[in-house]
Design a protein around this nucleic acid. Structure first.
Lengths: 200, 200
DNA sequence: TATATAAACTACACCGTGCAGTTTACATAT
DNA sequence: ATATGTAAACTGCACGGTGTAGTTTATATA
């Protein structure tokens, strides 16, 4: 790896760390250069302004999170098992340090500069990408009965977000794995009570 | 009204406006004095520091929101009607400009200074105050069957928050009254599908 | 030879203070 | 009632101190 690329990475790593722990506003470029073990001039050789660096960080963090497996509906497997896998993946994402970092940074900026709001809603992470297809297939197979599929998908995801994501985001309690399992179980129970077609 | 009280109110009004639109950090005391039509020195005669002003704003806004009726369980009335009244009150609160203002200001500060997180969770607004009692009574009356009442209460409230509050908070779309009614209906349907004891 | 470094520098914005002079509210005297 | 005194509050402005984005310059290093 070329030296310049290595330095660039050091800068981005430091920015991610400091923007998260201290906020974008409270992170000075001097502090950042120090943390990156790079001269301030080098920072400015790579990024013209603080804002450009911020944009780059956001992009990199989104890219990191973009991957993640897709769960496809399978008629042969019990629906609750499949939903549990989806929910487990989602909870793992929502409670991951990486996701919380980017979310905290992004949300703070969005709240300060509402014109960037679209950026957030556009980015489709986690099970949001495929849940509508999954539910459609489950309905077609006669396992679920849902009138408004996008709405129902939100109901499911929002359960997880509300119990797992927002409390962490606002610095309240984190959940233990046991609590997370309970949250997942209850979200599924709630969802299936409403939408599952009972056999028999 | 005495002059000094009038000035104080002008300062608080300006602070509420600017803290909301620009954030606490990005509001300078000069700007604030200008908006309040008051000299900067007067601002400092009323509030020793910017932080003291911030605390006062938060207190005033919480006081404004503190009122709100309590819905008590009534055996004679259908449970879905009662839940609808609770949900309507809650949605009205969550989508009110006053609540969104204080929430935005408070959350921005909490995210920047996590040590203040308790302040938010401690304040009990809306139906959070009484929903546990309501559900307990409904269970005792044999209308609902809930194992973990605080958890179920959260499930109900979080439905409303997720669809109504957070999208508004992050500057995404507002809901029309018709959409709000739909959200309420679906939240109740979901909740009762899981927890209602079917007659017969 | 191109790039990194260190340190000093510029330009600016902001918090909070001090102070001289003015306005307001209200009590007391005529 | 009207005039006058007075204390409290407001104003406007300048200033100290601090922090920070971004630049410049001179030097070292791969």
């Amino acid at each position: 790896m070329k030296l310049t690329d290595k330095k660039r990475m050091q800068i981005l790593d430091a920015a991610e760390e400091l923007f998260h722990s201290s906020g974008v506003e409270h992170t000075s470029m001097d502090q950042l250069a120090l943390q990156a073990k790079v001269s301030k001039r080098t920072v400015y050789n790579h990024f013209a302004t603080k804002d450009a660096l911020f944009q780059a960080i956001l992009q990199r963090m989104f890219d990191k999170l973009a991957q993640g497996g897709e769960v496809r509906f399978n008629v042969a497997e019990p629906i609750d098992q499949q939903l549990r896998r989806i929910a487990q993946d989602e909870v793992a994402l929502l409670s991951s340090a990486a996701f919380l970092r980017v979310a905290k940074i992004a949300i703070m900026q969005v709240m300060q500069r509402p014109e960037l709001a679209q950026l957030m809603s556009d980015s489709s992470l986690g099970c949001k990408r495929y849940i509508d297809n999954f539910l459609t297939d489950a309905c077609t197979a006669g396992v679920l009965k849902i009138a408004d599929i996008p709405f129902a998908g939100k109901q499911f995801i929002y359960q997880l977000k509300s119990f797992v994501f927002y409390p962490s985001l606002f610095g309240l309690e984190q959940q233990t794995p046991a609590q997370q399992a309970h949250i997942i179980d209850e979200a599924i129970a709630l969802f299936l009570a409403r939408y599952q077609i009972k056999p028999g």
